[in-house]
Design a binder for these strands. Structure first.
Lengths: 193, 193
DNA sequence: TCCTTTTCTTAACTTAAGTGATCGAATAAG
DNA sequence: CTTATTCGATCACTTAAGTTAAGAAAAGGA
């Protein structure tokens, strides 16, 4: 389990054994039950999440309706907006499956960044990479239709389609659940012919 | 002009006078004519852009059609995807207006980061901030209709609607130019009543 | 300046998404 | 195990976006 994290970090920096044990002694790993709400709208949390195993999701409640906008699975990280801006959160974060998460906070991270300059370097590289990746995702979203977006997801994240409820997938794709059902039926019919 | 940059940087870190003169001596400021293409599809550029004055845009050419997905105006920065991943670019970047840009590259930035740890800190904070901001933008895009997206833009970036051609705005909003025209007419009619 | 090209709007028609409702099926709760 | 509740699919209907085409307005180049 720890190795998943260290393998991931090794893409950016090289850690000594002492640094690894120091990291592990901080007790950052948490087992979280499905359905647990990690962040609520209105809260000004300072916690950041890195998924070791499982899945967490970001959702808004708009006019009483849940609107899911993001999923984070194995080796993906979420630093909620409110942690950066120090303002109340606009959204909720909850656990979609029983998961193992690395949960840290602003203080601990700052401390680590001050102590280990290479940690700061890793954070910069990682967030630059995420930013670039997200730009591409956003661009793809803008330039394609709901059907194309679904087919794209089917190709790039087939796991999500299996593990996530349809109605959450729908709002993730920017459409209503009924439209997703219809669209899937349409695709099946095309395939069949 | 330099002051715009230093004021911006002062939000993150404090620079000494020596550091400021060192920065200025690097000759990073460029005057760029409207229409200049800064990055082409297929290129593996290492250049990063910070807009001091003016506007640059990101666009794809899909089936021979230009699809604009992003605009960067005063005090906004673009590190193209290809700079991070070191792969050929999927998109073009061009100058929408006569602009003044700070143009740097991977080598210069790495050098500065190594020499001044606080520069690294600024980059991390800046890209974390951008990432969080973009997540919110993406979420708003997913959870709203084209009409809501237009009204939202009208409120948050009224300048863009003035300075950017309609057909580019349309694809930025994820719709066809004809739909934007229609949607604007619809809004005007509602207002009139 | 005049001419060409691009840009914006409008219209008619097609297609797909939103909406509201219903009905099993699956899931969760007791 | 049984009962609620949630979830997914489907249908009919409404609304809005995509598409194709045409014409007016604006911008750019010679």
């Amino acid at each position: 389990m720890e190795n998943l994290l260290f393998d991931f970090m090794s893409k950016y920096i090289t850690l000594t054994e002492e640094e690894k044990t120091a990291l592990l002694s901080m007790n950052l790993f948490h087992s979280v039950k499905k359905g647990t709400v990690l962040l609520k709208e209105g809260q000004s949390s300072k916690e950041f999440f890195f998924v070791i195993k499982g899945c967490i999701r970001v959702y808004y409640i708009i006019d009483g309706e849940e609107k899911t906008t993001a999923f984070y699975t194995e080796l993906e990280a979420l630093t909620p907006h409110c942690v950066i801006t120090k303002t109340p959160s606009d959204y909720f974060v909850s656990c979609l499956e029983d998961s193992i998460l690395l949960i840290s906070n602003t203080e601990l991270t700052e401390e680590a960044n001050n102590k280990f300059p290479k940690f700061e370097l890793m954070c910069r590289m990682f967030s630059e990479e995420l930013l670039a990746k997200q730009q591409i995702d956003f661009d793809e979203f803008k330039t394609s239709s709901p059907e194309q977006r679904y087919l794209n997801l089917l190709e790039k994240r087939p796991d999500l389609i299996q593990r996530v409820p349809q109605h959450q997938l729908a709002s993730f794709l920017g459409i209503q659940p009924q439209s997703l059902s219809r669209l899937r039926a349409r695709i099946m019919e095309k395939k069949g012919r």
